[in-house]
Design a binder for these strands. Sequence first.
DNA 1: CAGTGAGCGAGCTTCCGCTTGACTT
Length: 776
Amino acid sequence: MAKNLLIVESPAKAKTIEGYLGKDFTVKSSYGHIRDLVKSEDAIDIANNFQQKYEVPADKKQVVSELKKLAKEAETVWLASDEDREGEAISWHLFDTLNLKEDKTRRIVFHEITKPAILKAIDNPRTIDYNLVNAQQARRVLDRLVGFELSPVLWKKVKPSLSAGRVQSVAVRLIVEREREINKFQTEAAFKIVAIFGKGKSAFKAELPQRFAQQADAEKFLQDCISAEFTVDSLETKPAKRSPAAPFTTSTLQQEASRKLGYSVSRTMSLAQRLYESGNITYMRTDSVNLSEMALNAAAQEIRSAYGEQYHQQRKYKTKSASAQEAHEAIRPTYFDRHTIDGDNAEKRLYELIWKRAIASQMSEAQFEKTTAKIGISTRNEDLVASGEVMKFDGFLKVYLEGSDDEDDNQQDGDNAMLPPLQKGQPLDLQELSATERFSRPPARYTEASLVKKLEELGIGRPSTYAPTISTIQNRGYVVKEDREGKARNYRVLTLKEGSISKQEKLENTGAERGKLFPTDIGAVVNDFLVQHFNGIVDFNFTASVEKQFDEIAQGMKEWTDMIRKFYAPFHKDVENTIETADKARGERELGAHPESGKKISVRIGRYGPFVQVGDNDDADNKPLYASLRTGQSIETITLEEALELFKLPKKVGVYEDKEMTVAIGKFGPYIRHNSAFYSLPKGLDPLDVSGEQAIEIINEKRKKDAEKLIKVFDEDPDAKILNGRWGPYIEYGKQNIKIPKDKDPNTITFEDVKALAGEAGKEPKKGAKKFAKKK
DNA sequence: CAGTGAGCGAGCTTCCGCTTGACTT
């Protein structure tokens, strides 16, 4: 029996540490927190100094009972959870739940999983820091109070099942406000002047630093240049350098994997988890950019042997973020000499990204020579500017260049190009001069990753919660991640070539978005409601200000119950006030009057989502008409014309086999409905233009395709079929799709098998039953 | 993927942070 039981938070960490410590130590994991506040209302006794009621959740019962048993048998129990607020609380919960004895328990901490760091920690045990534990309790209690008092207000005033919280509500607010900035953005157009000098290999570009707002001024500029002479007025060459970025934290890894590999935040995290579990990288939930001494040395050795001494430059990075708790190292490869790893493609790519970033962070800077030439125009006062860059030493760029969120492509023009040798006073030969109309751009919509970046800047959320928070706000229907098509836009180009000016009108696509976060109407209404009634909570500085107080509690300078009491009294009053006095929030907006009937047209949120209403509710003679908004439309931006369009559908287009055919637009686009079946319209076909003949054709074609997929229909029930799907045969039974088990042959399956496989859910599974099963 | 949109009422929903698997496709 091992004399010592050492408990860490993560099982992968436990395995590594066990290898360092030898036979005297059993190393186990708590799998994170082992206790939480009970779910019920009485979790916090407000009248009794915010006394909390904790319980061990069902999925942790087994962990706790195993740890209890091992703790009883051990001589000494070492609590080695992370050295931050949550980690300290985990140690305390373990101490309390496992009934540990003070004289048999040691609290130790380390920031890196290396043998010397762990041995050093064991030599320097301490006791549980109750100030830090209290800071965590304050954090936990505050979040519960805010979340569980605010959410029910939304159920009453907006819609059931909604949620609000310190973190998620600010995330939604950022997206709602960004969307409004974009909506009200006024595009400004101006003409950008670009000249091309010289021919062939010695051709280069120069730009006019200022732009012309008016076409006439741009044209005048081109006119003046017809007879002008161009000379190099000045030449300046300056050295420039670029330094590598710090190794990854959770947030920067998510951003860079999104930019360079196109991974969603949750995909990145699950891939990283696999890399961590296979021992290839250090812990992936961290806010630290710090590397251990051991890692610094290993990186140095690898850089020297792979690239040479001149490429190495030791660097220690400091965290910028004030909220960082730095319980771990930065994310780095466990072994720097592994340039690549075994695993699937996605894992490999993420590993290589992590490897390159960590290696580059210990490399020398890249050196450039930047040349700027000013080119005078004999007929004008302005100068054209040409700039070029020559790399003198690649340094860290040999392995890695950080991506950029900036999608601006015109900015980069000519920036990295090389200039031919030039001399001051040299006359230049103009090949072409163009004035192109360019437009100012609204702020960019958030991607998952850029939202994480913003939240981190605001100190809101933690590495372990960025990905879940983004899922939550999408699951609640506050935000959708979508592609949206852009719009065509005309722009003008004036070109001076061979002494004459030509004018052109060109077409470009603008505003197309891929994988961006858009607020829904319900998100906007909930946000406005919270901003109006609970401004203090959804304030961008709320978290920062409570964090400051948590820090004071952690330093023993403040009583946690005092802090919570001071917060709770006015907050609770607001809650009660709002329940009593606030109107129901529906986001209603009047669009105007119907052009023919003069009836009022309005939009608002209803039980089933945003819709348009024509006519008044209390008009007894004429019941109002309703139509749901389509994907991409919102009650904030829909116009009267667009709203009226919605009433043109669904439209009856004819009769086929004695049943009506109706064209409508659903969640997945336009479709024909016939005899309770759905048939999607082919792309490009305007749903308002579909004729009866076209509809019949579409229906028949779909039937033909379905018939090809069909393997068998059961005699006992025609709703039970075997079909050929994307991944092979499967059973369709009513609305349920069932995978064929490996031990069954699709050709010999009987109806009895189908019923057995369908199980309790049966032919028409209840909505609730399915949802429940998924949750469990 | 339709249709719906008033109001009643039972019984439910909900937070943030720390961890992994167990699910289906």
